[in-house]
Design a binder for these strands. Structure first.
Lengths: 332, 332
DNA sequence: CTGTTAGCGCTTTCAA
DNA sequence: TTGAAAGCGCTAACAG
């Protein structure tokens, strides 16, 4: 299978210049006499020449590729972040390389190995799972890495997040102020730093009000939720729900409605993330709007800065969240 | 910013062999004496050597990169397909490169330019929009291209799809057989080959039964749908809906329910795709299960075959769909 | 079975 | 302002 055969030589020949000159009009056009430049540009156009990114990468020792480490593209938050990243990467001239990181099939080591081999200039970590081993790899890496949506303490590691603690605290407080007393916090069984933060925020508000915390840990998958939620509702009375994800919120709500709960009068519900699921639910879900698209953009922005300059000051950025009140809460 | 400095030379030196031998243990291990191979492997391990994929690509004239052209990662179908692609790409040793193709910001030419420059060995076209110009580029490409979820007539172009015509025909027929007479076909205003096929299938069944076609074209976005749908329902009585996407099905259904329609007794609804939206709706949506994950896998499989062998026979593959009957239809 | 030697297509000094 | 030449790190004949 042969590739594009127009090389820098073809152009140089046809334009009657050396290949160095062609290279220059590509990279430092101002260093070439206007006349020559014009001629070369014409030939490039004519031959439809596209510089071979691979060769260029090898010669210049930078690939203009960036890597994104991603668990599962079907997760709404990830998808939006990637959209944000693409947008920016494109305008900065970076190509994006994907490194899938499914928890089960790939151990951290393999992913990072692939990343190193691929010669990317920087990496964006969008995986929601971040283990100690990853942190080690990141620190050993000699290219910049930015972590999105993962709260990490290490001050040397760049990350961008929403203030999940504050968000959870705030909506829980809102519910308490409206007289809710039995507020369920529905979270994932698996431990994510993000959801941990939310739990801390929830607990802070609950304890401050002297209420009893009620925490339910479920799988993220709608199908597996049902029995767990049903069992919980068999044994407990609740009047509000704060869920770590919209989909979990909707799952809990739907089951509660089936059991006769009236939303929002008898049961108020908040989700997290403002995904499409929140829009399609009945009633439409009130939720924390975490601007995942924005997170992607900001992360990419940080990365470009770090790729150009080793000394970056602000390693932890917090993107503002919003509270979207819809049909599942009672704001008067 | 310096990169990984362990090269094939470091390994060769330390293992007391030539670089060619190291290269061999990497690419044709069987051609190296067991003893030497072991020694080299040890050094590789010890130095944590990772061959530079860029250099390798340049020397071998194949990058082991494949490109995916994608419009919007937040689309459920795309996301699942990418998951499928990743899964396979990984086991075949291909790295995935992303080429965003937003309709508005990028003209076809740019995308294909980037693809060529990046030296990928093959490309998967996951964009739902496929214009004449793209087809031209694809045919001029000297690397294989596989198109997913786009019905394209050209027999030279490889594609993988679900038989949308058949699926739409079948569910429409099902509705007719259950006595439904005013069946609305809710589709997108923008023209997609996929939805076109569905429309043809719908029309075939409707005409066959001597009924009146009822077609409503809306935007894909839930927010913009509402007025259009409301207006339609102001002026028309319907007793069933076939929508080209789950989200559209749910939008229509929710509005209909608000207007007093009882689902599924007075109004039956079918969606398309079996996304999460179908699971979270109330009642849960009956839908065509198009196995997008599978489509991704199959497309990737085709691509690998094509990358190894220019002469491929089967250029059009159809992946089987399923009909998922849930709460919005009346199967007895 | 292993080493030597050309490149792959480009960038980047260094001279001219 | 331009050209010549030396690599970037690796693969792939070709010898031996």
């Amino acid at each position: 299978m042969k590739k594009n055969k127009t090389t820098i030589y073809s152009v140089a020949n046809k334009a009657q210049v050396s290949l160095a000159t062609v290279s220059r009009v590509l990279n430092y056009p101002e260093k070439v006499k206007e006349e020559t430049r014009k001629r070369v540009l014409e030939v490039i156009e004519e031959l439809d020449y596209r510089p071979n990114a691979i060769a260029r990468g090898l010669a210049s020792r930078k690939s203009t590729f960036i890597g994104i480490i991603v668990p599962d593209f079907s997760r709404g938050s990830v998808a939006e972040a990637i959209n944000g990243i693409c947008k920016l990467a494109n305008s900065y001239g970076y190509q994006i390389m994907v490194f899938p990181a499914e928890g089960e099939n790939r151990v951290a080591k393999d992913v990072w190995s692939d990343v190193i081999a691929s010669q990317v200039d920087g990496v964006l970590y969008l995986n929601d799972l971040l283990i100690e081993e990853d942190l080690d790899h990141i620190k050993k890496m000699n290219i910049p890495v930015v972590i999105a949506s993962n709260v990490v303490d290490d001050s040397e590691i760049a990350s961008v997040n929403v203030d999940y603690y504050d968000a959870a605290y705030t909506i829980t407080k809102l519910l308490i102020d409206r007289g809710r007393k039995d507020i369920l916090f529905a979270t994932t069984a698996r431990i994510y730093s993000m959801n941990n933060e939310k739990e801390r925020g929830y607990l802070a508000a609950i304890e401050e009000a002297g209420l009893n915390p009620r925490i339910l840990k479920t799988s993220g998958k709608p199908k597996l939720n049902k029995p767990v939620i049903n069992e919980y509702l068999d044994n407990n009375k609740i009047d509000a729900v704060v869920a770590v994800r919209d989909s979990i919120a909707v799952s809990v709500m739907n089951i509660a409605i089936d059991r006769g709960y009236e939303v929002p009068n008898k049961l108020e519900v908040y989700g997290f993330q403002n995904t499409r699921a929140a829009l399609l639910s009945r009633p439409q879900l009130s939720t924390i709007d975490s601007p995942t698209y924005e997170i992607g953009k900001v992360a990419m922005e940080m990365l470009t800065v770090m790729m150009e300059d080793d000394n970056v000051k602000e390693m932890k950025v917090l993107v503002p969240y919003g509270i979207v009140e819809r049909g599942t809460t009672k704001t008067k």
